[in-house]
Structure formats: structure tokens, C-alpha cells
């Protein structure tokens, strides 16, 4: 599938902190967990397959698994995971993952952090509809549409 606008998300954020501080916050599994709202017991290392328990309110019954790809000190950190894997009974292991890349760049006022998550077009459309459905609030108007959609595309 060609890269389309629905395949990736790009975020840029200027952090008023040194690059070494940002690097630690994204690559130390305990620190990562504090802002990502998950608890990881093992440290991140390239090639590592690490399990985490989600602490995000309402999703505490879920675990997640991430695979660390690259760790180039203070420059690039990348990992793969199953985005929005919210069905505790589903086996996501055979499904495609998305790639998350954190890039750090030193700028005048601190660190420019770029986050790119890509590969969403590989995620089955029914999974994506399911994520919308499980996201409480705000979607009531669209809910019937999604349910109809899932009925037609089981």
C-alpha cells in the first residue's frame, strides 16, 4: 500500500530541557512509563521485547508489548507496537505493528523532539473502527455508522 495521509502521524514538540534529559525520559523504561502511563519492569534495549502494564485510567486491565528497534544515544529511539490494542481477548501478535520513531535535535532553547508513528494502513480497518468505538464519549453521533460498518465488514 502506498504511503497515504492516513498511514502516519507526525508530532514536533520543543522541550525546554537538555537533550540528555529528554533522552533519559524516553529511553529509561521507568521514566517512559510515567508519561506514557504504563509500567515496564524491564529496561529498554535494542531488540528487546518488553511487556508493560497500562496505567491509563479505564485501561488498567490491559498489558502491552513493545519491541525496541534502535537506540542511537541522544539522537534516535525507535520501537514497534500494536497501537490501541484495547481488546483483552484479541490476539494481536499476528497483526502488523506500527513503527514509532523519536528523533532528538538540539536547538537554541532546548531540544526539539520529533515523533513519527507510521504503518497505520497495515492495521485492519475493523481494528481501527473498534478503537473508535471503545473511545468513550464524543462519538455518539457517529456510533451507528461504525456499527453498521462493522456489520457490513466483519
Amino acid at each position: 500500500m502506498p504511503t497515504t495521509v492516513t498511514d502516519r502521524i507526525e508530532k514536533k514538540i520543543l522541550l525546554h530541557a537538555p537533550r540528555s534529559r529528554v533522552w533519559r525520559a524516553i529511553t529509561d523504561s521507568k521514566e517512559f512509563g510515567t508519561w506514557f502511563q504504563s509500567v515496564f519492569t524491564d529496561p529498554f534495549r535494542p531488540g528487546g521485547r518488553i511487556k508493560g502494564r497500562i496505567t491509563y485510567p479505564g485501561y488498567e486491565h490491559l498489558t502491552m508489548e513493545i519491541v525496541i528497534e534502535r537506540m542511537e544515544p541522544e539522537r534516535l529511539f525507535s520501537l514497534r507496537w500494536h497501537p490501541y490494542a484495547v481488546d483483552p481477548n484479541a490476539d494481536y501478535s499476528k497483526e502488523p505493528t506500527t513503527l514509532v520513531e523519536f528523533t532528538l535535535e538540539e536547538v537554541k532553547d532546548g531540544t526539539l523532539l520529533k515523533v513519527v508513528e507510521s504503518g497505520f494502513e497495515g492495521i485492519p480497518i475493523a481494528r481501527r473502527a473498534e478503537a473508535l468505538k471503545s473511545n468513550e464519549g464524543g462519538w455518539t453521533q457517529q456510533m451507528t455508522n461504525i456499527e453498521d460498518y462493522l456489520r457490513r465488514n466483519p
Binding site: T6, K11, Y84, F120, E121, R128, A129, L132
Partner: peptide, 17 residues
């Protein structure tokens, strides 16, 4: 669905960041 899903994930990232 594809657009709204991306929007949902995108908002999640905003909150996390």
C-alpha cells in the same frame, strides 16, 4: 474511519507529550 482513527491516536500523543 481511517481519518478519525488517526485523529484519535494523534490526540493521545498530544496528551502523552
Amino acid at each position: 474511519v481511517a481519518y478519525r482513527y488517526l485523529d484519535l491516536i494523534s490526540k493521545r500523543w498530544d496528551v502523552a507529550l
